[in-house]
Design a protein around this nucleic acid. Structure first.
Length: 733
DNA sequence: ATATCTTGTCATTCT
DNA sequence: AGAGAATGACAAGAT
């Protein structure tokens, strides 16, 4: 029930924040659709985390019983977050892809974004755009997305929560005492308060260095964007891991293929992902400064990948074509849609790649019939005479897409986008992120954070300015400490001044006070910092109106005489003034913070008038509510911050996955090129009984599952290819 | 003078 | 039933 409520009440806010933070659509679309559960969890995590705080219950906290039952599930949440952050840290340190993926896999059960999810998400997203992969629609959309993304990365850096550092300015309710007893009308009270304020001394400058410093620390927190990990070296394990493995071609195991390619990708998955990827990448490329793009586009002539695989002299086929034709069958299908340019090429020859079906050999039949992979590796030059019919069916798969230059570009674009910071910035961001992660962990206001703060309260509070003087790392801690809002603004001076009624609660009180140091508002433990916030006490209980107990305005007016007392008076909240005026025999802190039993006990020890009791109850109520409001606001802020972080995390994940994808594709392409060259070499060495080379247009090599390579008539291969092609299409429906 | 932010308070609901 | 937490709304003061 609680979660439902939370979800409903905060879902909108969070969703909105998410969207706004992400820019327009980013891939939140994707996440929301295909990864809703994890995202929801992420979103709800923080919110649910807020239901538990009992920062105010310092007593319990100090006693070690401050964990609210509701907070039980926080452990999971924060553990997940911590792990996530660790993963990201690893990412940044260029941990091998495989390792990262393993981490992500671990995350899955926790509902976080898994390594494989993005892929599916992308696939989903692009499922409808198979034909217009490069269409303007897709491109524009992705461009928006990516633009928003990159911009957000920067923006987020500057979005550091504007924490008000001005905690030192406060009301100076010097005269509060002289009017507060007209409780009958709130307005009247307000007027009087105003009057009093006017008469109050103009002491606006409080020694607030501590608070300001603290605020600065808060600002320092690493809400900024962060550096992105360097590209992973395309490593095989990661490739196999990331490439959606699919049913392997039944009878075919291409020996010539690298083991990496044995598990062929699911054509459609890959295709869709490719669509997505390519469109995204194109957009990214557009984002990057044009000069870079141009450089990238104009692949250097010496580019090994683009030139190494020269085609046979007799084939005037451009490299693109060769590349296309070198691709695996499965891949050819996968990417055929992505290469409009390829389709336009006269290379219909690709059809020649159709698997061959040996007419005279059952073994061949069984072998080749299983997949069109077999005939994929006809050397480009061989395709020149290939039949045209098959052409459209097997447009060059990678040609347009995997053009080396393009790949490089993609990769660089990706890097540029994700690591678009100079090294210095990156390092800075790195640090900030570290501190940030600390913040996210510690400031999450989880019970654990509370307890931690509790554990360190003595040390941190021992130096009143520890939080304010420490670096960003401590900013987080101070921030988290902030969560432990105590109601201390009222009565420190009161205590100093009228340290009377101490009902043996002093020890705890002192503890509480020390803890309060963590919170700006709790700096009130320092007399001169006590005036945090206003103190509009609108409607006091009429019962407190007893004018008989009018505050001693005289003393206030005697400020000139007794500077000290005046100063102390100014530190007092209205409730304190009222309490003093009503001669309440104990401090407001006790009134507010004592447990009910002790509170009642305390009351019973004194003979209090109705007015006094009423005032005390009001003070307690207001004090409690004040803390609650502070906590509530903190939670809100933290929710936003956490969402911000979540967005960054998601963006980082996305960028990383895209990076990995590019690497995988690059490796895949290299493999295909190697296979093609091998094919050419083997085919070129074959001689018929007359010692003449086979015509590529009439024969093709087919790889059998047992590792053998067979030479079969191309017509058979074409037939086989067509047969193979139809299946996936039907399946698609 | 105005807009915005911060804080305290109240009212209300929920635990 | 009462205490208290949570939170929306409002107002006052500060910036």
């Amino acid at each position: 029930m609680l979660s439902l409520k939370k979800y409903l009440t905060e879902g909108l806010l969070q969703f909105t924040i998410l969207l706004s933070l992400i820019g327009v659509r980013v891939d939140v679309d994707t996440y929301l659709t295909s990864q809703l559960p994890p995202l929801r969890e992420i979103i709800l995590g923080p919110s649910s985390a807020y239901t538990q705080t009992q920062f105010h219950n310092l007593r319990n906290t100090l006693d070690g019983y401050g964990i609210h039952p509701k907070s039980i599930d926080l452990d999971n949440y924060f553990t997940a977050r911590r792990l996530l952050n660790q993963v990201r840290a690893l990412d940044r340190f260029q941990v091998p892809t495989t390792e990262v993926n393993a981490w992500l896999v671990h995350r899955d059960p926790e509902g976080s974004v898994s390594g494989s999810q993005p892929s599916s998400g992308l696939a989903l997203e692009s499922s409808s755009g198979l034909q217009d992969v490069t269409g303007p629609d897709n491109g524009v959309r992705e461009s928006e997305t990516e633009q928003g993304f990159s911009e957000d990365l920067e923006d987020l850096g500057a979005v550091a929560p504007p924490v008000s550092g001005d905690l030192t300015k406060e009301d100076i309710d010097l005269g509060a005492g002289r009017e507060i007893f007209d409780y009958s009308h709130r307005q009247k009270e307000q007027d009087v308060d105003k009057e009093l304020r006017d008469g109050a001394e103009q002491e606006d400058t409080w020694p607030g260095e501590g608070a300001e410093a603290l605020a600065r620390n808060l600002l320092v927190d690493g809400e900024t964007g962060e550096s992105f990990p360097v590209q992973f070296p395309a490593d095989i394990s990661s490739i196999t891991e990331a490439v959606p493995s699919e049913s392997e071609p039944p009878g075919l195991q291409n020996n010539l293929l690298s083991p990496l390619l044995t598990g062929t990708e699911s054509p459609f998955d890959l295709e869709q992902q490719w669509q997505d990827l390519m469109s995204i990448m194109e957009m990214q490329a557009m984002e990057v400064n044009t000069s870079t793009s141009e450089v990238l586009y104009n692949a250097p002539p010496g580019d090994p990948l683009s030139t190494n695989y020269s085609l046979a002299p007799n084939t005037p086929i451009n490299q693109n074509v060769s590349l296309h034709q070198a691709s695996l069958g499965g891949c050819s299908q996968d990417f055929s849609l992505f290469s409009p340019e390829v389709e336009s090429l006269p290379v219909a020859s690709s059809s020649t790649l159709l698997p061959l079906v040996p007419s005279n050999s059952t073994s061949l039949n069984s072998t080749f019939g299983s997949t069109n992979l077999a005939g994929l590796f006809f050397p480009p030059q061989l395709n020149g005479t290939a039949n045209d019919t098959a052409g459209p069916e097997l447009p060059d798969p990678l040609g347009g897409l995997l053009d080396e230059a393009m790949l490089d570009e993609i990769s660089l674009m990706d890097l540029a986008i994700e690591e678009g910071f100079n090294p210095v910035q990156a390092s800075q961001l790195e640090e900030e992120f570290d501190s940030d992660s600390g913040l996210s962990l510690d400031s999450s206001h989880s019970p654990s954070s509370l307890s931690s703060s509790e554990g360190s309260s003595s040390s941190s509070s021992s130096s009143s300015s520890s939080s304010s003087s420490s670096a960003s790392s401590s900013a987080s801690s101070s921030f988290s400490e902030e969560g432990a809002v105590g109601y201390s603004s009222d009565s420190e001076t009161l205590d100093l001044e009228e340290a009377e009624g101490a009902v043996g609660y002093q020890p705890e009180y002192s503890k509480f006070c020390r803890m309060s140091y963590q919170d700006p508002s709790q700096l009130s433990c320092l007399p001169y910092l006590e005036h945090v916030g206003h103190n509009h006490t609108y409607n006091m209980a009429p019962s407190a109106l007893d004018s008989a107990d009018l505050p001693p305005p005289s003393t206030l007016k005697k400020g000139s005489k007794e500077k000290q007392a005046d100063f102390l008076d100014k530190q007092m909240s209205r409730d304190e003034h009222r309490a003093r005026a009503m001669k309440i025999p104990f401090t407001n802190d006790k009134i507010i913070n004592l447990p009910v039993e002790e509170f009642n006990e305390l009351l019973s020890k004194y003979q209090l008038s109705e007015a006094q009791l009423s005032l005390i109850r009001d003070i307690r109520r207001r004090g409690k509510n004040k803390m609650a409001a502070q906590n509530c606001r903190k939670r809100k802020l933290d929710t936003i911050l956490n969402l911000e972080r979540d967005v960054e995390d998601l963006q980082r994940d996305k960028a990383r996955l895209l990076r990995e994808k590019v690497e995988f594709l690059r490796s895949l392409r290299q493999m295909k090129q190697k296979v093609q060259s091998l094919y050419q070499e083997v085919f070129g060495r074959l001689r018929d009984e007359n010692g003449r080379p086979y015509s590529p247009s009439q024969y093709a090599l087919q790889y059998a599952g047992d590792g053998s390579v067979l030479l079969i008539p191309r017509t058979l291969a074409d037939q086989q290819a067509r047969r193979q092609e139809r299946k996936p299409k039907d399946r698609r429906k």
